[in-house]
Amino acid sequence: MNAEGMFRRQVEVALTVNGEPVEARVDAGKHLVDFLRLDLGLTGSHAGCEHGVCGACTIRVNGEIVRGCLVLTAQLDGAEVWTVEGVSETGEMRALQDAFVQRNALQCGFCTPGMLFAAAELVERGGRPSREEIREHMSGNYCRCTGYEAIIDAIEQVTSDQEGAR
């Protein structure tokens, strides 16, 4: 096997993004957030640190939340990717989004798409997590504006409404 020849600087990928098929040829080192933003114009995903700490780029790949900056686009052949634009269209995060607006759980909005994906995962697990559990689950998403309390309130509202409806 010729090792040098097999490694590609550019990689072909075919995946679905927000339910739509996408084919692209990308630089091997390009992370998913840059691909979404620069190649697809999906600017709702934000790069806050590009080293996996701030959480602003949190999105959903193959049904699980990931750090978009720590996933290479090249790895996503066949993957299913959902961004804030997509889930806003399907309406699946409507309750969380409404709660964030009502409770003013965002100020500048830069962290918000990532916050929503992190929060949605907790909401989907069901149950009525305590405030401490919500805080712990959200502890990988940085927000400089709100002081977090309104975000915790909004999520608590949604999880408690959801349980109440059962």
Partner: peptide
């Protein structure tokens, strides 16, 4: 509620 919040939660900033 802030009018721009509705836009920002949909990633339309």
């Amino acid at each position: 509620p802030r009018p721009n919040a509705a836009r920002l939660v949909e990633g339309r900033g």
